[in-house]
Design a protein around this nucleic acid. Structure first.
Length: 262
DNA sequence: AAAGACTTCAACCGCTCTAGG
DNA sequence: GCCTAGAGCGGTTGAAGTCTT
């Protein structure tokens, strides 16, 4: 009712910023009236959170940020706010725009070798090993774990189950933690959830995923390492706490009752 | 130089979630 | 348990800028 729409003017920005600096923004609906703005509270909130907030980082996204978005999107899907929470100074709206205008296209470009390489890590459904990967999630259901996908040397981890069936899983030797996080978390959630039985699905609620995805940012970036010693047997398997976390998680979710060897 | 096509991104829309009464 | 208001979220829109013909 008589409220202004469309782009904000500098004057409006100044009014909004000075009001919030002085009084805060406890009640967005009341704010424009009290500040003397002909805008709805929602518009003020969006303008503040997406543009005027002092901790907003302006300017182009770095390659590192873009890579992070791609990895996080693979894991989280279109949950822009969740992705934004992992990129300090960036807003969900900004990330959403960058995704639609740049990153989606970048992933579709077949000629770009570096992108292809990146895709092969984070888009399991499109990789050559998709069939193996699809199989691997089913193995989780069958009391085993398998990080299969890499044509390099595989190591085998026998999983002790509660039943008589000692299924065998394997874990590839040359995987970095980013591959494990970006890859397995993504396909676990998006590609293969249907592969889990209903009873297992029932045990996976949002709190599980929230917890899982709030893991160390370094893992997402691929800074951390979790390489496995090819020469070693299971007892000397090298792993870091993130890998341990995931193994424990699989244990809980997929009824992998324990990893006695670990 | 002009017109149309394309791209970008701030802002809006409508739905969902949550807290409080 | 129901209702309501406020806030948050993801999808969509459209104005402005840029590129192409």
């Amino acid at each position: 009712m008589g409220l202004k729409k469309g782009p904000w003017t500098e004057d409006e920005d100044m009014v909004l910023v000075s009001y919030i600096q002085r009084y805060g923004h406890g009640n967005w609906r009341a704010l424009p009236k009290q500040a003397g703005l002909l805008r709805c509270g929602k518009s003020c909130r969006l303008r503040w959170t997406n543009y005027l907030r002092p901790d907003i980082k302006r300017g182009n996204f770095s390659r590192e940020e873009e890579d992070m978005i791609i990895n996080l999107h693979e894991m989280l899907g279109n949950r822009w706010s969740a992705i934004a929470a992992r990129l300090p100074g960036r807003t969900d709206n900004e990330i959403k725009n960058v995704w639609h205008t740049h990153l989606k296209k970048r992933l579709q470009k077949p000629a770009d070798h570096s992108v292809q390489e990146s895709n092969s890590k984070v888009r399991p459904a499109e990789s050559k090993t998709a069939q193996v990967e699809s199989k691997s999630i089913k193995l989780i259901h069958q009391n085993s774990v398998e990080f299969a996908s890499n044509p390099t040397v595989m190591q085998t981890i026998p999983i002790q189950s509660s039943s008589e069936d000692n299924s065998t899983g394997s874990i590839s030797s040359n995987w970095s933690s980013s591959e494990i996080s970006g890859y397995d978390m993504g396909y676990l959630r998006n590609e293969s959830m249907e592969s889990l039985s209903q009873e297992h699905m029932a045990t996976i609620d949002d709190s599980f995923w929230n917890e899982a995805f709030s893991m160390d940012l370094a893992l997402v970036r691929g800074d951390a390492s979790c390489n496995f010693d090819e020469q070693s047997d299971l007892n000397s398997l090298v792993y870091d706490e993130d890998v341990e976390f995931w193994l424990r998680t699989f244990t809980e979710v997929g009824e992998l009752h324990d990893f006695p060897e670990l």
